[in-house]
Simulated assay, not measured.
Amino acid sequence: MAASSKVRKQVLTDLRRTEIIAAALKIFGTKGFAAARAEDIAAQADIAKGTLYLYFRSKEEIYVAAVQHAIDQLNERVQERLQSATGIRQRVAAFVTARLEFWLERRSLYRLLLTVGREAQNRKQTNALLRTSAQSLVTLLEEGVATGEIQPQPLEAISWAVIDLLRGANERRLDGVVAHSIEQDAEFITRLTLHTLGLTEEPSSPAKSSSNHPTAQS
């Protein structure tokens, strides 16, 4: 009974923390991080200011928790997409598309990553996010090497280049610099990545192959 009560309490705590994070992101998005106050976040979350401090000591701590929460959600999103993708081409496309879509849905948090995330006290977490992103792509590409779909090559360098392309696409969209769609960005980055990996064309289907190479009987 005691164990059940403890689990229930933890679930409620996690739920309340998630609600506070969501409220804080709305306030950060409307007022900016510097101008946001604890009482603003508490009001948005419909709780007392004192209650807020039971879960977070400061808005900086909320920011750190928000980024970690987003990282967990992003990893889940990417893994879900990868589960339904077959072959290295589809898996690279799923990786790229999932990340572009995810940050498009979380513009406010991404804007914070570009500002608050680059401050000295948060730089370590931001760099860890980038390293995790690059390493997840390295792992995906290593699977392609293991199956013989791609040849051994400097996968870490390629992965960092892809992450940089994704960051650039996200920032340009956030700043309103580009007019084309997220699908166009995803297709371009995917095609460029596949080209770098030496995968410039889709493999021919058996039917197409036989039509291009008639047998002696024909």
Rank of each mutant, 00 (worst) to 15 (best):
F95V: 04
R106H: 15
L112W: 09
K124W: 07
Q90S: 14
D72H: 05
N75P: 00
S84P: 01
R77Y: 07
A94R: 04
Q73P: 04
E76F: 06
Q68K: 09
I88E: 00
V138Y: 06
L113V: 06
A70W: 08
R91N: 01
S108M: 08
T97M: 07
S133P: 00
S108K: 12
A94W: 00
A94I: 00
L109M: 06
Q135W: 11
L137H: 06
R89D: 06
Q68T: 09
R77W: 02
V67G: 11
Q90T: 04
Q125A: 09
F95C: 04
A70H: 09
L113G: 15
Q135E: 13
T132G: 15
L74T: 01
E76N: 02
I88C: 09
Q68C: 12
E80C: 03
R131P: 14
R106I: 02
T97V: 02
R99T: 04
F95K: 03
R118Q: 12
L113I: 00
E101L: 10
A98R: 09
G117D: 05
V92L: 02
Q135V: 01
W103A: 06
N127A: 07
A120Q: 10
L100F: 03
L129H: 13
E105I: 01
R123A: 15
A128G: 13
N122I: 00
S136T: 02
Q83L: 03
L109G: 01
S84M: 05
Q73L: 12
Q83M: 08
L100V: 04
Q68P: 05
V92M: 06
T115R: 03
V116I: 13
L129S: 15
L74S: 10
I71P: 01
G117I: 11
A94H: 00
L113R: 14
R131H: 13
E80W: 02
W103R: 02
F102P: 03
I88K: 00
R111M: 11
S133N: 12
Q73G: 14
A93P: 04
Q90A: 15
N122H: 15
R111N: 10
R106Y: 00
L82Q: 08
L104C: 13
V67N: 08
R99H: 02
Q90I: 02
T132Y: 11
